Simulated scan of single mutants.
Amino acid sequence: MPDPARPSLTPSTDIALAFDQLAVGYGERTILRDIDMQVRRGQVVAVMGGSGSGKTTLLRAATGQLPPQAGRVVVLGEDLSRLSADGLFALRKRMGVLFQQGALFTDLDVFENVAFPLREHTSMSEAEILERVLAKLDAVGLKAAAFLRTSEISGGMARRVALARAVVMEPELILYDEPFAGLDPISMGVTAQLIRDTSDRLGCASVLITHDVQESFSIADRVYLLGRGTIVAGGTPAELSASEDPFVHQFLKGEPDGPVAFHYPETPAYQAWLARQRGAR
């Protein structure tokens, strides 16, 4: 019998991404467990947590790079575990991803980097590609940099080019891995508003994997906080800001003392590794 306290995963055109009792990790090592989350079209959802809390692992599960150890990942109505390689490839065309390192092609100029997905996955004419790419570059303030090589732009500018490329296909679901990293304060605010405006205009779902509390809280509809291998808190920015939970309070305030540990926890896998290292000496 279904648990009435848990969200239903009945197929819905409104739900772009859902994790249902997800456990995911690497090999036999589980990083996250009991993850229940739904992201609806038009929503901006921020996933936050300390370094090593599993944020990027969750993103990899959403793109099908990491299969579930338990539970399900449902993207745009498709259960990823039931898709063939071709089916997963087709689904990814409906998604946009801003990678943490930008992942720009160093042998292409700014324009061609942003145009690349359009050339690979659409039959748009050159005139249509030109106007679409220039519009996306204009949105991130870099239209006049279209002709520059990637080696000629700063790291912050490269992040904005990568953002333009992530949205150029106008996807239904966009995953942002640390979208504010390396940006100056002005670019950070502009980028945050661009993410919000893109979700509103396209009606797409946006998921931010981020450490940045201020900018994320200014645009997010919901925020989830990862810790201790699971979701420790979730709600609107206002609800989390008002939370008296020690874990939430320490993370949002950046306090050094509290339940969020600085040191990566010792695990049986570490102890086994250490024993092997000492035994070999």
Rank of each mutant, 00 (worst) to 15 (best):
T236D: 08
A272I: 12
S218P: 04
I174S: 02
E255A: 15
P171L: 01
E239V: 10
A275F: 06
L202E: 05
P171E: 07
E172A: 09
Q271K: 14
A272C: 04
T267M: 07
Q214T: 15
R276G: 12
Y224D: 01
I231D: 00
A233E: 10
V248Y: 03
S199V: 04
I174G: 00
E170L: 01
T267P: 05
P256C: 12
P179A: 07
R222S: 11
P171F: 03
G182M: 05
S241D: 08
V260T: 09
A238E: 15
F247N: 00
L226Y: 00
I231N: 01
H249F: 08
L252G: 09
W273M: 15
D184T: 12
P171Y: 07
A181D: 05
R196E: 12
F180Y: 12
L274S: 08
P259T: 08
F180L: 06
L173Q: 09
L202R: 07
G189H: 09
G234T: 13
Q193R: 15
A181W: 05
Y224W: 05
A181F: 04
C204E: 05
D177M: 10
E215L: 13
K253G: 11
G254L: 12
S216P: 12
V168N: 03
L274R: 15
A269M: 10
M188H: 09
L208K: 05
A205T: 02
A192G: 02
L208T: 08
Q250P: 07
E239C: 05
L194K: 04
S216T: 12
P256G: 10
S199D: 01
L226R: 02
P265T: 05
A242Y: 05
F217T: 09
F217Y: 10
G227W: 00
V260S: 04
I209L: 10
S241V: 03
Q271H: 14
Q214M: 10
E172R: 13
D245N: 10
E244S: 14
F251D: 08
L173I: 11
Q250T: 06
A192P: 03
I231F: 13
D221M: 08
R196Q: 14
M169I: 01
E178Q: 04
A233W: 09
P259G: 04
A205I: 04
F262D: 13
L208D: 02
H249Q: 14
D197S: 15
A181V: 07
L226W: 00
A238N: 10
I174D: 01
S216F: 07
A261E: 14
P259K: 10
R222Q: 15
S206Q: 08
I186E: 14
G258M: 09
H249P: 00
L252D: 10
I231S: 01
R201Q: 15
A192V: 06
P237R: 09
L175F: 07
P256R: 07
P246D: 03
W273F: 15
K253Y: 13
T210S: 10
A220P: 00
A269G: 02
Q271N: 11
G227N: 01
Q250C: 11
A238S: 14
V190L: 14
V223L: 02
D200E: 15
L175Q: 12
L183A: 11
D245R: 00
G235S: 13
Y176W: 09
T210F: 01
T210N: 01
F180C: 04
P185C: 13
S187W: 12
A192R: 04
T230S: 10
